[in-house]
Design a protein around this nucleic acid. Structure first.
Lengths: 204, 204, 204, 204
DNA sequence: ACGATCGGGACATCCCGTTCGT
DNA sequence: ACGAACGGGATGTCCCGATCGT
């Protein structure tokens, strides 16, 4: 047996390697040869599964990035009792993650990275990223609306604006951490964001 | 003397063209040949003023980006009466700017773009960008501290954390606008940030 | 038995598709993947019937091109009463063909195309093509010789030279039509060739 | 001095090498790397003078092929006394050329080669080749018309048809020689063509 | 008999930088 | 101070063919 010859598994390996390299070097900075080198595959294998570099990038967005948001945000919010607490828990989870893997701080947020780089250059990327942001902000917004109905969240609040503001701020903070490389400051900044979120609680 | 002036002028033209292309395509995506095409110059001219592509990128950061922050933030803050009002004025200025030039929304923030792309890849960029962020946050932090001394700003506030949070949030919001392409929502998000800033006022 | 028939049918489909693509793009310009795309087959199927691209090209020459010459020239000449009339009839048939399918004019003569492209590059092609030309010119030459014996054709004529001249001229004319794309002019040129052929009649 | 650094000369070297390789392998079969290998130049040099492979091919047609026809046909015909004699002289010149350089027989006619290969595939090639054929046939046609006025050529002759027929036949014969590789037969075939040409003389 | 997966070399082109000149 | 010519490595993609399976 020369190789495992498992198509789905090979595709996955390619996708993972692409994700890592795109995460680090950006889409434009990522080189196809690097993917081959890290996976140990040959050109033919890669171009059997993906028609070109662009479709590789699209697949990473559609499958991996979409999935991460689903897992970390949308699923927890869908079945939560209190959106404010849930959001704060998720944010704190990011802080813990960074404290355990401080080297990840230099990489930033995969979704934000590709978004900043490619949204203005390639319509295909833009559409895909927009879709992710829509579902993401939609999930937060919906959770906040339900929180308003339950009396947990301030009534005079535009849930969609608040949702986008949270996401934007968080991404901004993660981006700032790229330069700062300071886990403590990162924690304090997310703390400030949590303060803002907590400020959305209904006062009785 | 004329030659000297022409030389300086040529250098400036190169720098401006580089800024535009770097702003749009990223540093890695920017091609030296494009600079030559837009300026109408030849290789010899460019490499007379800059030793290589990297030094071009560094010069843009050191001279142009640094200067923009100085102009828009540091100078106004240095001689301001009230930091809170000044910051809000600056933020609103960004909103006005975006409403007048909505096509700029797709480009994002030059400083943030280059920072997200290169801070993790090139130490030289990282150091330069860090320096800018330091002076920027330093200026805000100083202004807030003076505001505390004047009784304009809450006493229980860590000025440096607040400063970085403001900047991070703003950059995050500008980044989000890249995908959304929605001037109204951008205004509301900056509005939410202004609310946060206004919340830092001392209560008496 | 059914499998056998399917197999033979598949081989035929491959061969036909190869002929079309080779006819249009040349042997070197023809891509194996195009054959698979037009036939809907996979690599495995093709390489089951043919060992490589070269053998595909050889098969087209041996089976299809050979067959066309046989059908259009050798068979009619073998059982003809008067070679001169038969040749003129065949030539006029080409004119009619072109007038009905003017789009074929841009394709030229399959045999000539492959001959011009590959005879000097690949010995295998050259041998196969030479064989076809030999049988072709042989058939014409034989018919002319019989015509001489019957007193239909000039005695002072080298039948083999005349045969090759006819074929060469015709191929040249078809080739010229590729650029001209003019059905009327094509008819006139073939007419001039027919005049030459008619001039070979014995005078009494 | 590293190299001659003579731009025009370098361009010429590239063009000559391209001509040779295109002549032998066809346009599609020609490889850019071969040009670099034979000229000893680097990629940058070639792509400084020609934007891509296509423009190289076009330049060979426009400059070299055009020039050859000019030199061998148009100029001699422009100032000739008798077109029939001049054409026969030119044709015989080709026979002599082939007898001196029999290895050229396997290469065929450069103009015909590229025409058969690319006229149907690339509009740019087709236009350029058409232009050459037009000026070529036009020159012969004009010379024959003048011959008619001088009483040297049959009155009942369509000069343009005769011109194209000559060229077509000649190209067909040269093409046939590619397979035959027989200098004697080539001479006889051109002889047959000369007979046709001589038959166009006015009878008095 | 045919399909899916994969290997790997070749190819055209891009693109940064150097070296001449003037 | 700037233009033109050139060097040469890197890159994405093509494309032939081999090797699995069923």
């Amino acid at each position: 047996v020369v190789a495992e010859r498992n198509a789905e598994q090979t595709r996955e390996r390619i996708l993972m390697a692409t994700f890592d390299l795109m995460f680090k070097n950006g889409y434009q900075g990522m080189r196809v040869d690097q993917i081959l080198a890290t996976t140990g595959l040959a050109k033919g294998a890669l171009y059997h599964h993906f028609s070109n570099k662009q479709s590789l990038g699209y697949a990473v967005v559609d499958e991996l990035l979409q999935g991460r948001i689903q897992e970390f945000w949308i699923n927890p919010l869908a079945e939560c009792d209190n959106p404010i607490e849930t959001i704060n828990t998720i944010l704190q989870g990011h802080v813990n993650e960074m404290q355990c893997h401080p080297e990840q701080m230099a990489l930033g947020c995969p979704l934000n990275n590709i978004s900043q780089e490619m949204a203005g250059l390639d319509e295909g990327f833009k559409e895909r990223l927009e879709k992710i942001y829509d579902t993401w902000t939609g999930a937060i917004s919906d959770a906040l609306t339900k929180g308003q109905q339950k009396g947990q969240v301030k009534q005079d609040l535009e849930p969609d604006v608040a949702a986008i503001f949270m996401i934007s701020s968080m991404q901004g903070i993660i981006g700032a951490a790229k330069c700062m490389q300071n886990a403590d400051m990162f924690g304090k900044l997310i703390g400030a964001l949590c303060d803002y979120v907590s400020g959305l609680r209904a006062v009785n």
